[in-house]
Design a protein around this nucleic acid. Sequence first.
DNA 1: TAGATTGTTAATCGATTAACAATC
DNA 2: TAGATTGTTAATCGATTAACAATC
Lengths: 206, 206
Amino acid sequence: MKVSIPEATVARLPLYLRCLSDMAHTDSACSSEDLAQAAGVNSAQIRKDLSYLGSQGTRGVGYNHEDLREQIRKVLGLTSVHPVIVVGAGNMGAALANYKGFSTWSFEIVAVLDVDEAKIGTRVNGLIVESLRQLEQIVEEKRVEIGIIATPPSTAQSVADRLMASGVRSILNLAPTILKTDDGVSVRRVDLSTELGILAFHLKHM
Amino acid sequence: MKVSIPEATVARLPLYLRCLSDMAHTDSACSSEDLAQAAGVNSAQIRKDLSYLGSQGTRGVGYNHEDLREQIRKVLGLTSVHPVIVVGAGNMGAALANYKGFSTWSFEIVAVLDVDEAKIGTRVNGLIVESLRQLEQIVEEKRVEIGIIATPPSTAQSVADRLMASGVRSILNLAPTILKTDDGVSVRRVDLSTELGILAFHLKHM
DNA sequence: TAGATTGTTAATCGATTAACAATC
DNA sequence: TAGATTGTTAATCGATTAACAATC
């Protein structure tokens, strides 16, 4: 690890990238204030965050739109394709497999797995659903880097264990469970009922 | 607003609630250390967070499992049912409508809307997909408190505007866009490609 | 009483932001 | 040069956690 970027900054970089794409029609120069507006954060925050990437801006002018996007992509590691496996071909799994956004961000879903015999063999967005039994084999053959867990909570941990044992170092957990994971494995948890819980709190207290 | 609970604490309360449910089989006493293990956070954090709820524990013993769950539910406002509307009946919208977890957390999906004539009238988890044109009427009739936006990014802002104009104060945005929202409206954004972007960074830098 | 665990303090850590010199 | 905007400092703010007295 050469540069050390604070976690909070890393979490905002994808947001900036998205905002820059939405602004693509504008001028090639983009000020920290422009980006701040679009992203809904403080402009000092933007400048500080971008300074971690090795400063790119031109005083009095702003940041070059294209260069900045490229720089963020590079730092996030979106310049090479990342093979992704989706475990669980339920509604959520299908939603993921059909989500066009991934490919433009250079994530490629290489397989969708399920335990359910009735689902195996059916097609989800051009991919044939394969048996969960094939997990290890597929991870190896396709050099899977990221595993998305979209199973019921009861099987999430065992899937995570198998992914980790196969060498997967990054997991996106959509099942409403807290996974026990090995050191060095990054996990992101997305739990819609947690989000709704937070909204419910605000309903009451605002 | 009587008590002021830090945002970071609020965001952890749903997690604690989930962990307590998973631990339901255990003793009625639950120490901050037990909960810390389950939730993957520091035990001092747990005690501090719980102290905001008005302290509940018994020194030397721990927290009463049931009382604690009830207390968290109350603070989050999960003691009454919250009517939720889902806009967008694509894969993501369908995944939401089918998600059983909501009801146990006292969120009730009262309608699923879409613009697509082909989808209107079809059934998603017992609910008939209705026309987006009905949004205002349904929000009023069903006293909708929370709107979930699961549309393509291009229509997300206009849906948000209409929800806010109809009096909806809480929005969960699943579309990959940054919404401009009025003061006093709480928005939670869930963006899977952002999550993957963060994971990609860790792949490179760990 | 002895052992355990809370509730709270105070120290630490990290993240945000106002302010401004540097400079295009 | 005058105007604009960066890059960075230093102040502020909020969140985390070790430590321990209180007390069951």
